[in-house]
């Protein structure tokens, strides 16, 4: 059986909120290392990969592999009933028909309990190759969100060019063009404001802004976002969570002339 207790419902609320517009039905794969999710969007352009390690829960118990097939719209409805600060416990039997969610208020004696019917989801898992990326950029997640939103007002695509000069986000549209360039930057007082660019070779790739803006819904999960790029491979956008847990998005590039 599965029993996983989260100190704050907020974490799961934010994760689900960040991915629910990208993927609708997905398996939460539970085993003794934690709860994982991998799903593609309907058009097979983007992939979301979530890992909530067992250490992110206290306690965490999962005796055998259990796949919880959940409709994220349904999960969102139920999670809306949880206060951000509630303790959230997920429970399921070994061959479950439902997943049970319990929300406990730390301040009052209120306990709410919900069951969500599970779905049988035949989901393909993709193998994600280990990649030595040509460029890795860590930057404030709010800054990345702002750049993507600002450029989407002009164009549906953005080119991300990384060189030793810095990283340049540029777009061209009907009304004109725009770009934002960031250089490495260290803020001793506010490390969340740091921009770190780790470059082994220059890289330039083009991506759909619609997807990037969607990924940025995860911005409230982490002060920093990491972008990993290599020529002609999908972009990795990673929001690191506590205890080595993470929410990652992969986005296939636009290629050709």
């Amino acid at each position: 059986m599965l029993e996983a207790r989260l100190e704050q419902a907020n974490l799961l609320k934010k994760v689900v909120d960040a991915i629910k517009d990208l993927v609708q039905d997905c398996n939460f794969d539970c085993n003794d290392s934690g709860i994982a999710l991998q799903a593609m969007d309907n058009s097979h352009v983007a992939l979301v990969s979530m890992m909530l390690k067992s250490e992110s829960f206290s306690p965490f118990r999962c005796d055998r592999n259990i796949a919880l097939g959940i409709n994220l719209t349904s999960l969102t409805k139920v999670l809306r009933a949880a206060q951000n600060e509630d303790i959230l416990t997920l429970k399921a039997e070994d061959a479950p028909d439902v997943v049970n969610l319990v929300f406990e208020s730390a301040e009052s004696d209120r306990i709410s309990e919900y069951d969500i019917k599970l779905m049988d989801i035949d989901q393909e898992h993709l193998g994600i190759p280990e990649t030595e990326y040509a460029a890795t950029i860590s930057m404030p997640s709010a800054e990345f969100q702002r750049i993507c939103r600002d450029l989407m007002a002009l164009s549906e695509s953005v080119s991300i060019e990384c060189s030793k000069e810095g990283v340049k986000f540029a777009c061209q549209g009907d009304i004109g063009s725009g770009s934002v360039t960031l250089r490495s930057h260290t803020n001793v007082d506010k490390p969340e404001m740091n921009v770190e660019i780790d470059l082994t070779e220059p890289v330039s790739l083009t991506f759909s802004l619609k997807y990037l803006v969607g990924f940025c819904k995860a911005s409230s999960l982490s002060g920093q976002v990491k972008l990993c790029l290599s020529n002609e491979v999908p972009l990795l956008v990673e929001y690191a969570l506590a205890n080595n847990s993470y929410l990652r998005f992969y986005l296939a590039p636009k290629i050709g002339d």
């Binding site: 593609m40 993709l126 992969y250």
Partner: peptide
């Protein structure tokens, strides 16, 4: 114009 690639062109099904 550039065309949008599929993620399946990069990551193989297990």
């Amino acid at each position: 114009a550039k065309s949008q690639k599929s993620i399946l062109g990069f990551f193989q099904k297990k």
